[in-house]
Amino acid sequence: MGQPKGLVSENAYTILNEVEEKRVSLIAALQKIQARYRYLPETAMRQVAARLRVPVSQVYHVATFYSAFSLKPKGRHIVNVCLGTACHVKGAGLILDRFKRELKVDEGDTTEDGQFTLQAVRCIGCCSIAPAVMIDTETHGYVRQDKVADIIKRYRESKEK
């Protein structure tokens, strides 16, 4: 099929835009579901597939490809320990280990009480204040191992309020 000439007519635009909208919305829909439920429940993925008329396999492919999606429920607070280069050079690996010990979970897992999910993330763009940790949307800079427990405590307390 060659390039459709004269595609620049108004009707073609409208059609094209509709198609675009639908396709773009797969990831956007999953992002919204993830934000609401903190994971992608199977039923929700099936509903997305049915509504957007894409195969379930494609939804599953997308859901497992991107790190923003999770098939397991995530915790109330997402702890993202940055393992970017600048953070690595400044000992981010040891900070991650400390979070693992303090939260008693492994990387990618959620604490039993459902409060925290611990993740390693590749650069959150706060390299000048390395090592950095992003919890939910808040960024903490110059994190030290001996401060990790305090940081966690602050978020634990914030839930009790």
Binding site: I27, Q31, Q58, S67
Partner: peptide
């Protein structure tokens, strides 16, 4: 378009696939 968290999406064809709603 908000990315889904995949380094490879910085690559041009992967990024475009991602905008199209596909895996990058």
């Amino acid at each position: 378009v908000k990315g889904g968290g995949a380094f490879v999406c910085g690559e041009s064809t992967a990024l475009m696939a991602s905008i199209e709603g596909k895996p990058g």
